[in-house]
Nucleic acid binder design. Sequence first.
DNA 1: GGATGTGAAGATCTTCACAGCA
DNA 2: TGCTGTGAAGATCTTCACATCC
Lengths: 286, 286
Amino acid sequence: MATGRNHRPATSRSRGIPDATVARLPLYLRALTALSERSVPTVSSEELASAAGVNSAKLRKDFSYLGSYGTRGVGYDVEYLVYQISRELGLTQDWPVVIVGIGNLGAALANYGGFASRGFRVAALIDADPAMAGKPVAGIAVQHSDELERVIEENGVSIGVIATPAASAQPVADRLVAAGVTSILNFAPTVLSVPEGVDVRKVDLSIELQILAFHEQRKSGELPDDGRAVPGTDIGEDAGGGVTGSPVAPPAASVTKRTASAAPAATDRRGDEPGNDGDLPAVMPA
Amino acid sequence: MATGRNHRPATSRSRGIPDATVARLPLYLRALTALSERSVPTVSSEELASAAGVNSAKLRKDFSYLGSYGTRGVGYDVEYLVYQISRELGLTQDWPVVIVGIGNLGAALANYGGFASRGFRVAALIDADPAMAGKPVAGIAVQHSDELERVIEENGVSIGVIATPAASAQPVADRLVAAGVTSILNFAPTVLSVPEGVDVRKVDLSIELQILAFHEQRKSGELPDDGRAVPGTDIGEDAGGGVTGSPVAPPAASVTKRTASAAPAATDRRGDEPGNDGDLPAVMPA
DNA sequence: GGATGTGAAGATCTTCACAGCA
DNA sequence: TGCTGTGAAGATCTTCACATCC
């Protein structure tokens, strides 16, 4: 391993900075900003790591990808690091953003204070409902969908946020992309297909909750039951089709092995960027 | 390597199912549910993978951790898989959930259709604002914070969702945990510290946007400027303290190397479960 | 003395490619 | 023949442990 010295992880990805590291930079930045506001001049990797919730080794490794911004025996200069990370993340420039779908979620996003303070500027709020047009949300007048393309072009928007119902997500994404947007943050529970070169990140509550349920499940007892097609006879052959209600009935099917090992109580959390979804209700009205 | 045969990845984590796999199960479930509604009887790993946005090898590997639920030469039985994944995720049981902080975000969550249809049941909506008490949101009357403990105990709630401003998040988390909640989905941009055994997952818009900005940045040009403390003289020594506005001024500091390599245009998305935050405005009013 | 920076070892996760079964 | 199931190889990410430098 190690393609020689200076083996830098990261796929062929962006620059040489590993994705995992990029995902943590915002965390560090947040912790550093807090320290900066308290006028703390320097921090050790230990302290900062603690504030950011990671371990110090990881933090130092992450920073090493950015360069040598610390001082041995001392620590890191808070102000300087804030600047470097901001620059690395591209937050030193202005990013006009459009939010499409101004329902509860869209409104929540529009009101999100973390935007303005980090280089993001809400350039426009778009909604398909004519009744919403003109209404002020977070101090900005909502505009009708018809204005989408114009707004994007006039403001040079490259980042779009989709907070519409699932059904509208793909059409909206298509329009965003056609108008020039190259990065999309999708809150709708749908798999968006976009052309090469367009980045899509997704936030999905349903998935997060399901992951929590998974872990929660094995805290108490084991799985509800192996659920395997019962050997003898017992199930009343449910194999219907409706898969809507909460509890799902165990349909019979081709089963083979399915090893039911003892499950050691576990506690851990993990998040990830799966990639998409399938179809589901919406987070909120458009 | 391979600790023998049947080497199963996954840390010491839950059962033997890798976290990465658990994080994708909800995606598969969603895609399968859609197929189920269209009464599709079986799917090949290829088709399902496509619908879920992953590659087929990964999907087959993921399913292999659950057992052998497919039929060679045929594919997977949709209904059966829906059931198995639901069971594995713990969705065959009822999960009462409390949502704390009924602002725009909290309301959006309460209205989220994905809850009920997946075993999750909103047991109560809690808000600190007395004016909110009694108001119906998503058909449920909001209750005052004072009711929190009672509601949790009476309903056997083990999953709590925090949608309050950052400042209230930790106190709320403490109360949730004290009352018996062991899994928390946190939308507030703060690092929550909870006792061992309590799971915390976080959803952070600010972070997602920043990651997008990072990638967006290197689509166009390179970094705005190396930003390194200018060798000669040029910067007006900014090292002030305010780190609030969007563009951050480059403070001088101890710099050492910082290799500015050429950055190949990249396009990729990645999400992750960092672990926490530091401090920031709030997503919405409580 | 003290904390950073980092090669190397481990642990996971992903992808390949093909044996094996319906 | 077709597609699943999976050992093995790769690619990443994390953690260790210590040389290095203020």
